[in-house]
Each structure stands twice: as C-alpha cells, then as structure tokens.
C-alpha cells in the first residue's frame, strides 16, 4: 500500500499535478540550456508514464478530474503567455497531466514519447532564438519571419508539431487519448479536446507575436546547413509520428 502511494506521489511529481506543477515550472524555467531542458522534459514525462504503467494504476475519478483540471488550467494559462520558453514549460505540464487519461490503457510510454518529442524539439529551437535575439518573447517585436526566415520556418514547424497537428507524434497521441476515453468519460474527453483547442490558440498568438510584423532587416538567421539538419529532424519527427500512430491506433 505504502509503495503504491510512493509510486503515485512520484507519478504526480513527474507528470505534475497542480500544485506540484508550480515546482516543476520553476525548475524548468530556470534551466537556460535548451538541450538540457529538452532532455529533462523527456526525463520527466517518460519515467512518469513508466511509473504509472508499471503500477498498472487506474486513477480514481477524483484523481483523473484533478489531472484534467491541471491540464486545462495550464493550457488556458498558456494563452496569455508571451515568452516561448515558459510556453513550452506550460505545455509540458499540460501534456504531462493529460497522460493521466492514458493510465490503465495500452502504450502509455509511447504516448509520453509522442507528447514529449515535439516539446523537446521546440525547446531546442527556443534556445536558438534566445541566443540570437536575447529572448523569444512576443512583446519584443522580433518579426522573425523577415529577420530570420529559416529559423522562422522551423519555429512554425515546431509550433505545429507541439499543438498536435498531423503527422506529428502528438497528433496520434491525442487521438489515442480521445479513443481511450471517448466511451468511458465524456468530461475527460472534453478536457482533452479543450486542451487541444487552447494549445492551438496559444500557439497562434505566440506565432503572431514572434514571427509576424512589418518588414525589418535580415539579422542573424541560422546557417543553411543547420537549418537542413533541423529540417531533417522534423521529417524524422513526422516519420516517428506515423510509426507511433500505427502502434497506438
């Protein structure tokens, strides 16, 4: 019994539920290195899912409701964010909480990977922007589309992957979560769909704030070679999504 509780507490920390999420956000936000942040995001989501999966734990209704409220709460709060780094962290918390809806169903680890991978890639890209412009903030009038077109294109691709557009792994994961819950619990299903729409809303606001605006001088775009590597990474992400979709659905 006590080991079950310990596992559960561990899962609630790694797939953070409110108010543990406050701690998670504080830790993630302080990590300046994007690659390290990406790794930690995956490190949190994957072991969290593994713990839930291992315990074969099916969360009781109150706990599922708590997780869904956390997910929607952070998705809603992300709508008002202007800082891309914080946005990634909020979406990671929202995604982690959503994974509780997959507890007790097949492929929870794959689902964690599906939601985590795009976030990890986004985190690396945010660091690239921060290095070149000082911050990835919508209030800074970056106008990335003309200032750094290649970086801007990658930024759009990452945003789309994070908000679960096809054929990103997160798309198939969200679809699998809806499938898991659609006949079990209407409120949980609505929460998953609600998160999906709020993520899209916040991403579009972030895109408009960071990438769009009147023409400006081209400044410090990433080299073509690096852009190709990241481009290939996104193609790989899409391929992973298709493979993952085949496993989950």
């Amino acid at each position: 019994m006590s080991s079950d509780l310990a596992l559960l507490a561990g899962a609630a920390l790694l797939l953070p539920l409110f108010p543990f999420s406050i701690l998670a956000v504080a830790v993630f936000e302080r990590i300046g290195n994007g690659t390290l942040r990406s790794l930690l995001l995956l490190v949190c989501l994957l072991p969290g899912a593994a713990v839930l999966d291992r315990a074969g734990f099916i969360p009781p209704d109150w706990m599922l409701a708590w997780a869904m409220l956390t997910a929607v709460f952070y998705a809603w709060r992300a709508v008002a964010l202007q800082d891309a780094r914080l946005w990634v962290v909020f979406l990671a918390v929202s995604s982690g909480a959503l994974l509780w809806a997959g507890a007790g169903h097949d492929g929870l680890l794959w689902k964690a990977l599906g939601l985590g991978l795009p976030l990890a890639m986004m985190s690396v890209l945010v660091e690239l922007i921060e290095r070149r412009f000082g911050a990835a903030h919508a209030g800074m009038d970056l106008r990335l589309a003309t200032a750094a077109p290649k970086l801007s294109a990658l930024f759009v691709a990452a945003l789309l992957a994070v908000i679960a557009m096809p054929v990103s792994p997160s798309f198939f994961t969200m679809l699998a979560l809806v499938v898991d819950q659609s006949r079990l619990s209407a409120p949980t299903t609505l929460a998953i769909l609600g998160c999906w729409i709020l993520w899209s809303w916040s991403a579009a606001r972030l895109f408009a704030g960071i990438a769009v605006g009147p023409r400006r001088e081209r400044t410090d775009d990433i080299p073509a070679g690096l852009a190709r590597i990241y481009g290939a990474g996104f193609v790989g992400l899409g391929a992973t999504g298709i493979v993952l979709g085949g496993m989950l659905l």
Partner: peptide, 9 residues
C-alpha cells in the same frame, strides 16, 4: 476527432 473515436470504439 470525437466522432472518429466513437466509431472506432
């Protein structure tokens, strides 16, 4: 998405 999930179920 929900309609698809229900049909699959």
């Amino acid at each position: 998405v929900l309609a698809a999930a229900l049909l699959f179920h």
